[in-house]
Write a protein that binds this DNA or RNA. Structure first.
Length: 165
DNA sequence: GCCAACGTTGGC
DNA sequence: GCCAACGTTGGC
């Protein structure tokens, strides 16, 4: 089982959209970056857990958790000329983009902000917090996952100063 | 809205 | 295959 972080603009697909339909599989489509695509296609598997990260919005950060319920398959939006993700170069035999299906797991009681993630010395290797990073599907190590979960449950917000054990 | 950082494109 | 120009991402 692997851990991931997926970026989304909440106006498009937020943790609340998952929470509204907790029993439904939600199509995660529109990834149009090769590195992210390769992760989706080759490594993201049913049963993996995913942090849902809200970007390009007022409250930036990790909003909750989803799980993968369907391995990658051709992204239907690449064939849909009315979709913003339409790719005119995609044909039945040459369709570079893939989607996976996700399902709701939990919404954090409070969003874990990018600011807090950046403060944690334990997350320095996470591509998300690196300057200029644009990867929209990225692996999260088991240690990072546990730590982020812990931070999300810390009521008084995570005090990194007390982390020097 | 700005703009730095990045990925992609296309001429050569 | 190089690399300048361009378009996009995404925090601020």
């Amino acid at each position: 089982m692997n851990y991931w972080l997926f970026k989304t603009e909440p106006e498009e697909c937020s943790i609340d959209d998952f929470a509204k339909a907790p029993d439904q599989a939600i199509v995660w489509e529109g990834v149009r970056n090769y590195q992210a695509r390769n992760f989706l296609r080759d490594q993201v598997r049913t049963g993996d857990l995913v942090f849902v990260y809200h970007s390009s919005c007022k409250d930036i950060g990790i909003a909750g958790v989803a799980k993968v319920v369907q391995n990658s398959y051709p992204d239907p939006s690449q064939f849909n000329s009315s979709s913003p993700y339409f790719d005119a170069k995609s044909t039945g035999t040459k369709a570079p983009w893939v989607a996976v299906d996700l399902q709701f797991v939990e919404k954090f009681t409070r969003l874990l902000s990018l600011d807090k993630l950046k403060q944690s010395t334990k997350l320095e290797q996470l591509p998300l917090v690196k300057k200029g990073n644009r990867l929209s599907v990225m692996p999260v190590s088991s240690a990072e996952w546990q730590h982020i979960i812990k931070m999300s449950q810390d009521k008084g917000n995570c005090d990194e100063a007390r982390e020097t054990t």
